[in-house]
Amino acid sequence: MEAFVIANAERYYGVWLITRCGSLMKTGYNLHYWGLCLFILMLIGLVSRVVAFFGMITFKKK
């Protein structure tokens, strides 16, 4: 999400861009933390697959 917001920031203009970049800096967004972003995406994917698997077992679906 961080990389998406920062990469698309050039499409915005005017005061909105200034306030958006200011709020991103306050919350600590950093494009260089891509390893953490990939890890979180993989973790969310793994957790969702585990939940889906247990749901299939619980409801006896294949």
Rank of each mutant, 00 (worst) to 15 (best):
T27K: 07
N30V: 03
G22W: 03
G55C: 05
N8H: 12
L17T: 13
L31F: 10
G35C: 10
N30H: 05
M25S: 10
F53M: 11
L17M: 04
V5Q: 04
K26C: 01
L36V: 06
K61P: 00
L46P: 08
I40M: 01
M1Q: 05
Y12N: 01
K60G: 08
L31R: 13
K62A: 09
S48E: 13
K62W: 07
L17A: 11
A52Y: 09
C21H: 01
A7S: 14
A7H: 08
T27V: 12
A9M: 12
S23I: 03
L24V: 00
L43T: 11
M1E: 03
M1G: 08
W16N: 08
V15C: 01
C21M: 14
M56W: 03
K61T: 04
L36H: 10
G45A: 13
S23E: 05
S23G: 02
R49W: 11
G55T: 06
W16Q: 10
S48G: 10
K26W: 01
V51D: 06
F53H: 08
L38K: 15
L31H: 06
I44G: 07
Y33N: 13
L41T: 15
L41W: 14
A52L: 12
I6T: 02
G14N: 01
L36P: 02
G45F: 10
G45W: 08
Y33S: 08
V5I: 13
W34V: 14
K62I: 09
Y29D: 04
L24W: 01
S48R: 11
G55W: 02
T19A: 06
G45V: 06
G14H: 00
T58S: 10
V15Y: 01
W34I: 15
I57P: 00
L24H: 02
L46I: 15
M25Y: 08
R20D: 07
L31E: 09
L31I: 15
H32L: 14
W34T: 14
F59V: 03
